[in-house]
Structure formats: C-alpha cells, structure tokens
Nucleic acid binder design. Structure first.
Lengths: 204, 204
DNA sequence: CGAGCGCTTGATTGAGTTCAAAAATCGTGG
DNA sequence: CCACGATTTTTGAACTCAATCAAGCGCTCG
C-alpha cells in the first residue's frame, strides 16, 4: 500500500512566481495557462525519464530534488545534474534534437514537477513579456557547465569536493555521499578519504 | 614589418549565410545590418579577450580558428573551447553576467571575426524571423558540454582522445598536439604515449 | 532482529603526472 | 634552398593520486 504524500497537486507557487516575475506573464494569461499544465508527483527513486525514452518533456521542479545521470559501458553511473526546487531538468538530446534520451531522470526525494512540452513553449513564446529570459537561463547553465569542465580539467578530488560543497551547500546536505562522488567523478571510497582528510587536517 | 594577410575585410559570406538562412533575416535588413557590424582581423597568437577584460563582445568566426582557455593557480592552461569558422565564441561570465572575463580568447590561426555587442543582439531580436534559432544553438552547445563532462567523468585518456578526433577530426588536424592534450585534460606526454599505443596496437 | 544500504578503512594496483633529456618538426633569415 | 634556433613531440624513470578489491561497521526500516 502506498503511503500518503504530503504534496499538494493543486498549487504551484514556485512556477507561478517564475512565470510572473521572470517571464512577465500577466495575471490573465497566467490564469489561462496554469490549468493546462501537466503536473506529476514522483516518489523517491521513481523515474521521469529512462535511457532510450522519447517523451520530449522538460521538467520544472516545483518541489523536491531530482538528478539526471548516464550509465557507461562498465555499468557505472555518472550524475550530470542535480535539480532542486525552482530549476529545470531535461534530456537535451531528446527534447531539442529529437534523439532518444541518453540519460535517466530520477527523483532523489519525493518530488512534484511540472511537465513542459512543445505546446507550452510555443504558448509562452507568444505571451511572454520577457522573451530573453530563457536565453539568460541557458547562458547561466552554460557558464555553470564550463566551470564544471574547468574543475574536472584542473582540480584534484579534494578541491573539486570543496568547490562543490561551497557552491551547492544546500544540495550537498540532501543527497547521499555516493551521489556527490558520482557527480564529481570519483569513487565513494576516495570521497570518504578526502572528507576524512579535510576533517582532520584543516579547518577551512 | 607585418606581412600581408590574405583576408578580405569587406565580405562576410559565412555570417551573411547565417543571418539569412538560419535567422531568416531579409535581404533588406541584411543590407542595413551588415555595414554596422564591427569586424576584426586577428593574427595568430593575438588575443581578442584577456582574463579580467570587460569588453562584453561575442565573436562570430568568419574565418580562421580561435580558442578560449583559462589559467589555473599552478599556471596551467586549460582549453575550454575551439572555435572554427561559422562558430561563436565568448566569455559568458563577461557577456551574460557582467563579470570580468575569466578566460583568454586567442587566435590559433590568422582569423577574421565579427564582433557582436548588445546593440546587435537587440536589433537581431527585432528583425529576426526565426527567434528560436539562438536558443537552438545554445541548447546544442549545452548538449555538447554535457557530453564533454560525461567524457571527463567516465572515459580514460585514450578513449577521450579517440572520441575527440572522431568528433572534431578537422580541428584535430589544425591544432598542435599539446592543445588537444590541454582540451582533454591530460599532459602532452600522456597524449604522445596514447597516440603511440593507438598507432602500434590497433588499426581502428 | 536481521537484511540492506551507505560509509569507512586497509592493502594493492594502475593510470597518468612530473622531471629530464633527446629527437623531430617548423619557421625564418640568409 | 639550406641552416639555425625555437617549438613541439617523443621517450624513459620515478612518483602520486585515485581506483580497485575486500572487509567491517553502523544505521534504518520492515
């Protein structure tokens, strides 16, 4: 028997705020738009997307925490992105290039997401007063990724971990260690040792 | 004395094509726009942007080849991006977030670039018939970066190199080996050994 | 309570770095 | 066209960081 979730599926305060404050959608249009949105509750460990899927949804995380990850030839998992409340997550191969999904998107916590399809994007494009905002988000994410590439290129395990917890302190408290290791591209054992070293040696 | 360059600063066939075919700019608007563009010839080894700069230009590479890279605390260079003809390059911290540039942008070959500022973007936004195209480019670049992150997370030096030369075969013939090593996040010595191994062992 | 999951710890292995130096290639001026 | 210096690539040996393999610990949840 499923336990009852404390997630209310009617209100979407975070997404409403995003639409109003960021995209400049009017109250009228908002009232028209919101009932059309597809919402979904995902339990911890459930999937929104699996490798090979072709559903072409983007997701806005109204509440909870998700991750996307790939599995390589050796069966190892590699986390691409964490997505907490107020962030977007999708498989870009699938959504923007019509290729089958290369990644899995899974709930780390019981979550509540809004599913965005092409129709939504079209509608938004027409009614948004701030058409550049989407591009700003994309550019921020790019800068983020470039920073991550840079970290992977030049920093050792310890420094990458320190950078991660300083940059994503809230997320780092909500996910198990092995996921952080997977995100950083190191093993859980190495992360464990790194943490020990930080705890004993330094007090930065 | 400077040697004469065989680069003609009047015509911009690649950029014109981009504006017409991709953004759907009309001949009329094109004729109005092109004379306003700032163009620049950069010689090999010259810089368009240095760390700390605040010029806020994006560049379209009409001809030639550029790279962007960062320098870490140990003085090591890490290549973020190669930009051949028909591609864009910029420092996103600077252009989109108004922070001083974190990277250098340098010409690998004698090049010819078009400098794009905010005014250009505003103008384009007004006259473009295909307003989504910019986002498509950004999403492609994101997918690219996510793939690179994934490669850095799971692939060994040899596989990353093989992936690079298969994906960027043209670029790989135009840049010295040590730049490829820098892009891949390995030393030139390691790359040399990897290449030797590929040459002797396999014939893929 | 016991099974499973996540974290830690130790011993060993291996990929890649570092340092040093030789060999090959490139560009330039004579 | 050749020669010279500078840059790039290759090679070798020692070393380092992180991965792997293998146990053991501790907590939680059914």
């Amino acid at each position: 028997m499923k336990r009852e979730k404390c997630i209310n599926k009617t209100f979407t305060p975070n997404f409403d705020l995003y639409l109003k404050a960021k995209l400049g959608i009017s109250e009228d249009n908002l009232a028209r738009l919101v009932p059309l949105l597809k919402k979904e509750i995902v339990n911890k460990n459930d999937f929104l997307v699996r490798e090979g899927d072709n559903s072409r949804y983007e997701f806005f995380v109204e509440r909870g925490l998700l991750r996307s990850y790939t599995i390589d030839q050796d069966g190892k998992h590699h986390i691409i992105q964490f997505a907490p409340e107020n962030s977007f997550i999708s498989d870009r191969s699938n959504v923007y290039l019509n290729e089958p999904s290369m990644s899995f998107i899974e709930a780390i916590e019981d979550s509540y997401v809004i599913k965005l399809d092409d129709k939504y994007n079209q509608f938004i494009k027409d009614i948004s007063a701030n058409k550049e905002y989407n591009e700003i988000i994309l550019n921020k994410y790019i800068r983020n990724l470039e920073g991550r590439v840079n970290g992977l290129l030049c920093a050792k395990a310890k420094d990458r971990y320190l950078q991660f917890i300083s940059h994503y302190s809230k997320i780092s408290l909500r996910v198990p260690q092995w996921m952080i290791a997977s995100y950083l591209g190191i093993t859980r054992e190495t992360l464990s040792r790194v943490r020990k070293e930080i705890a004993t040696n330094n007090f930065v």
